[in-house]
Write a protein that binds this DNA or RNA. Structure first.
Lengths: 202, 202
DNA sequence: ACATATAACATACATACGGTATGTAAAAAA
DNA sequence: TTTTTTACATACCGTATGTATGTTATATGT
């Protein structure tokens, strides 16, 4: 049995390290090969362990994928928040945050793992659960702040957030295949801006 | 060798029938079990043939899924077009079409096969190819008509269509889990309407 | 300090599923 | 009538997931 407030043992450090290795390997291979083509054997080898170790740390393949998505989303939210914080006025934070979100969505790993595959692999409900807890929480919070300040007027901020989120992802998925990405991005931002503008009061 | 303009033989009718049976079975089982869980064996059994027949008609599992998605999308486009045609003014056709599109997205089979799984299974590019050819073509055409009539002003109608499409799908995916679907739907339509309103000139 | 238990893996095995190669019967073509 | 082709069925193979069992090092209790 473990004592309550005990020091962290070396062994625990090791295990945490291998767990992280599995997570990192999964992230890599899921991003490059896709969920289905990513073999547990390959992931384990990349983490320099056997499949036994894998199944010791994760229930199954889906569980690893879930963990990867959560990790990626937490990271994304952090990046976005950092960028947003560079602005003082709330409305500027919003536009900066959207900009940052778009940049994140353009990372190939994020696009493939989170946007393209996660909804299908984890199911809509679980996917939204993760999304709501992390990157979308920022959007919702910012829009709510604007609403409290009387700069924005709409009943259902949660829904408005989702719509903006959907539009950002749509633009992000379109960008890699566009013949003029800069222009497309500008136009996309214009559309998103127009939507928000429609509910802007000041 | 086959003659050029020859009559349709009974045998050809039979083969077409089994192909349709496979397609129908695939549609059923993909909708209820999802792509990954849907076994080719199960699909073949449901179509009352063996796996040999399956592989005679389709290259592989993905090919069947592709065919199913195309069929579903063609059907969807037809439904939407029919509903839109009930209106005379182009702008009313647009809103009626959006309404119809939402209804289609709410069918569980459509939501699962087309919206949730198709992008991941077929890949973004192929998915968009199908989407562009069928249900989105209507949206784009209508918006372009409005633009020509001078009722709508935006440079990139294609992009605007995609945005509206994304918003509709977002609402549709949110609806089944909502505690007040009617209200959510109304609010969603309001947001979409606001976006279009932002580019409306008249 | 020593025995015991448990955590962190490795190994081996069972199973299932996708895909392929081959076989066959009926119908169309020659 | 023979020959070929089509539309399947059967048999088989490889691979990937998941599970059950073994092993070793470390932590714990006496």
């Amino acid at each position: 049995m473990q004592e309550a407030g005990r020091e962290r043992t070396r062994r625990e450090e090791y295990t945490e390290t291998t767990r992280q290795a599995l997570l990192a390997a999964g992230r890599e291979i899921f991003a490059s090969e896709g969920y289905q083509a990513a073999g547990i054997e390959a992931i384990s080898r990349a983490a320099r362990v056997t499949r036994g170790a894998f199944y010791h740390h994760f229930e199954d393949k889906k569980a690893l994928f879930d963990a990867v998505v959560v990790a990626v989303q937490i990271e994304a939210a952090a990046k976005i928040e950092a960028r947003a914080k560079t602005q003082r006025k709330v409305w500027d934070r919003l536009t900066e945050g959207i900009e940052a979100y778009l940049d994140v969505c353009l990372e190939p790993a994020y696009a493939r793992i989170v946007i393209q595959e996660a909804p299908a692999v984890l199911g809509q409900t679980r996917y939204r659960e993760i999304e709501e807890a992390h990157p979308m929480a920022l959007l919702t919070a910012t829009l709510n702040a604007l609403k409290r300040q009387g700069e924005l007027d709409f009943e259902d901020i949660e829904l408005l957030s989702r719509m903006v989120d959907a539009m950002i992802c749509e633009v992000a998925l379109l960008l890699p295949g566009a013949e003029n990405p800069k222009r497309l991005r500008a136009r996309g931002q214009k559309i998103i801006g127009s939507l928000l503008g429609a509910f802007r009061t000041t």
